[in-house]
């Protein structure tokens, strides 16, 4: 709590000084500083958490690296700032961070009222419910009268309230600030069900004593498109963030990987040539080096590689691609043409 208050004080102070920060474009500020300052989660394995060597690992962290690679040609020129769920937007508004890449759902009211804009969706998530298998429940609709544990995070409490209002059912909501208490209450049977984004449920299940005792119910009760956010009214910076993300997706589509990116420079495919800066000068149009695309793939790989490395089936989270597969593989990941 004290930490939250401190960060709010810091945000308030930051706001009083934000005038200067937003006067110059974000790209110039970032270049002059020599590194990108990227807001990420406190510690969410799979999305942003330091590994045993202290290097920030995760899906969101790699999005930050791809932007840094586009700007500096080096994906490691990033300073990761762990942001609190309550003050993440203030950190962005005040200029404390350049980009917010923190499992943040793109919603209308955030876009319209918080002085920020969202880039392309990097992860299609949705809120789900998990129960113990022994409960014998097959659908979330059977959970009326149950107690449901959750974190106060984002819109989770509202979504679950809306869901039960729609089916005219009552339930008991138990809200925890600490993820550990939330999990402990669920494992102990204080709550019949736990609700969160499906990616988060996967990590809660992964750390249970016996993951096979729990099952995620089929319903997805909300749409949670997670997207990076940046300050409003800086369209050049917005383009850089968006196209860095889209380049990751386009690279997967074209089969460009971290391993073969150097060979791909010699590719005959005009799309690949443009993306990697072998022909034309697309990077210059964004105010970047012409080899920006090459740098991005060189530092983090393509979208599929980022996904599999951090949250995919080989990891503890064990998520399948689902809606996050490429559009031509039945998913929603679609990049506008890079030309």
């Amino acid at each position: 709590m004290k930490q939250a208050l401190l960060s709010i004080c810091a945000a308030a102070l930051g706001l009083t000084m934000a005038g200067q920060a937003s006067a110059a474009g974000t790209l110039e500020t970032v270049k002059a500083r020599g590194k990108l300052v990227c807001g990420v989660s406190l510690a969410t394995p799979g999305f942003a958490a330091p590994d045993d060597k202290g290097r920030m690992q995760g899906f969101d962290a790699d999005i930050c690296r791809s932007i840094a690679a586009a700007v500096f040609g080096d994906g490691d020129k990033v300073e990761f700032v762990p942001t609190n769920i309550n003050t993440r937007f203030q950190a962005l508004q005040s200029g404390e961070i350049d980009v917010l890449s923190r499992q943040t759902t793109h919603t209308f009211s955030r876009d319209a009222s918080l002085g920020l804009d969202f880039g392309p969706t990097v992860f299609y998530d949705g809120q789900g419910l998990m129960v113990a298998k022994s409960l014998g429940v097959a659908s979330a609709k059977e959970l009326t009268e149950a107690a449901i544990c959750t974190l106060p995070g984002t819109t989770t409490a509202q979504n679950i309230s809306d869901f039960f209002r729609a089916i005219n059912g009552k339930f008991e909501l138990v809200v925890f600030e600490s993820p550990d208490e939330n999990r402990a209450a669920f494992y102990s049977g204080r709550c019949e069900a736990i609700t969160s984004d499906r990616s988060d449920l996967a990590s809660i299940r992964a750390v249970a004593n016996n993951p096979d005792d729990y099952v995620v119910l089929p319903e997805t009760i909300s749409k949670e498109p997670l997207a990076p956010a940046f300050r409003q009214n800086d369209s050049n910076w917005g383009d850089i963030v968006s196209w860095s993300v889209w380049l990751l997706m386009a690279a997967e589509e074209k089969g460009i990987t971290q391993a073969n990116v150097d060979e791909m420079l010699k590719s005959e495919d005009p799309d690949v040539q443009r993306m990697l800066g072998a022909t034309e000068e697309l990077g210059k149009m964004l105010g970047l080096d012409n080899n920006w695309g090459h740098s991005i793939i060189k530092s983090v790989g393509n979208y599929g590689e980022v996904f599999e490395r951090n949250v995919g089936e080989g990891t503890r989270l064990g998520l399948t691609r689902g809606p996050n597969a490429l559009w031509n593989a039945g998913g929603l990941i679609y990049s506008p043409p890079i030309r």
Binding site: A11, I85, F89, R110, V175, E177
Partner: peptide, 27 residues
């Protein structure tokens, strides 16, 4: 009593946190 937030009792701070998350109007 604001430590309630740690163990899931909906006191003033807990409710305010949920409100903050929903409206974004932290200050």
């Amino acid at each position: 009593s604001s430590l309630a937030i740690a163990i899931g009792y909906p006191d003033l701070v807990m409710v305010s946190n949920t409100v903050m998350n929903q409206t974004g109007q932290a200050i």
